[in-house]
């Protein structure tokens, strides 16, 4: 009897094993999918929900969206007040516009600085190419916060730049560099430059040198060859790099906070402040949702670019 039970058990086990083996694809997909649904997608719906809740002085400082009423159906209290508050308060609109402007100009600057560097690296030969690439990637591995801090040291009133300029006699007394828009631009370009160079390099590396030679052979001068052959062929890299800089830069918090001080309006900083100092969570949520709406188009575009690149690799 015991033996037959054991046989039945092992039979069931091996059948369970086979059942699992046959479903290996579902199993390895389900685990990360479940994690992302719970910790990535669900939070957005909660933010959305709270953005239409009423602000309360309590902990947590927002009204519960679903109140179990007397009937079976929960009564829902929804308000668009937080959004209309954003729209009516001039400060928020100006902040969004200012964020977009700063992110756009920084992206353009990053491209202007990054493009020739990426190009030079992609045309360097052998070991030199890897060394240069390594030098570009290295700062990306070191602390973001500390790299921003390094610029505080350069730009401060008694910082290295002012000291240098006074020593050279260019200026009499320190000029204000830190806590200005200029500092924010420098900070963003500095911090995000690797994100511009790497996709550009990945794109240019695949570029066949003979293309330019063919263009030259067919009579294109260097400038014409660049604008008619190289630039169009590197467009996917330009797009990917610009999006990788523009999207996170729009919501940037650390750089405007440390280098811009109170003088530069950026939405990431306002959101953080709304949340941390004012404890107005519904308004912070509405700010976040509005930022997401602004960024959803570039994010979808980035997703498309990524998907196309992945396709080309296979």
């Amino acid at each position: 009897m015991a033996e037959s039970t054991a046989a039945v058990n092992s039979g069931m086990l091996s059948r369970l094993g086979n059942w699992l083996q046959a479903r290996w694809q579902s199993i390895i997909t389900a685990i990360p999918l479940f994690w992302l649904l719970l910790f990535f997608l669900a939070p957005f719906f909660i933010v959305l929900k709270i953005s239409v809740a009423e602000s309360l002085i309590a902990s947590p400082p927002f009204s519960s969206l679903f109140e179990w009423g007397e009937g079976l159906l929960p009564s829902v209290s929804v308000t668009a007040e937080n959004y209309s508050y954003l729209w009516e308060d001039d400060l928020y609109v100006r902040t969004y516009l200012s964020s977009l402007k700063i992110a756009s100009i920084s992206t353009l600057l990053c491209l202007l600085v990054g493009y020739p560097i990426a190009y030079a690296i992609s045309r360097a030969d052998g070991a030199m190419r890897y060394i240069l690439l390594f030098l570009v990637i290295l700062p990306f591995w070191t602390s973001f916060l500390l790299r921003v801090y390094a610029w505080m040291g350069l730009l401060a009133d008694q910082g290295t730049f002012n000291n240098l300029l006074m020593w050279l006699g260019v200026i009499e007394k320190p000029i204000r560099l830190l806590y200005t828009q200029f500092a924010v631009y420098v900070g963003i370009v500095y911090s995000y430059l690797p994100f511009m160079i790497l996709p550009l390099y990945a794109n240019m590396e695949k570029l066949d040198n003979s293309m330019q030679e063919a263009a030259a052979d067919l009579g294109a001068r260097p400038a014409a060859g660049f604008f008619t052959v190289t630039l169009p062929l590197t467009a996917p890299g330009i797009l990917a790099g610009c999006l990788l800089v523009f999207i996170p830069a729009t919501g940037e918090f650390v750089i405007p906070d440390l280098l811009g001080g109170g003088n530069v309006l950026m939405i990431g900083r306002v959101l953080y402040g709304e949340f941390n100092s004012n404890h107005d969570w519904p308004v912070a949520s509405a700010v976040a949702i509005a930022l997401l709406i602004v960024l959803v188009l570039p994010m979808m575009l980035y997703h498309r670019v990524q998907a196309r690149n992945a396709e080309q690799n296979t």
Binding site: I46, G251, F253, G268, Y272, L292, M299
Partner: peptide, 14 residues
């Protein structure tokens, strides 16, 4: 590419 402030806020609320 998600701005960190959004990820942070949404996870906290979760």
């Amino acid at each position: 590419v998600m701005p960190e402030v959004i990820t942070g806020l949404s996870l906290l609320l979760l």
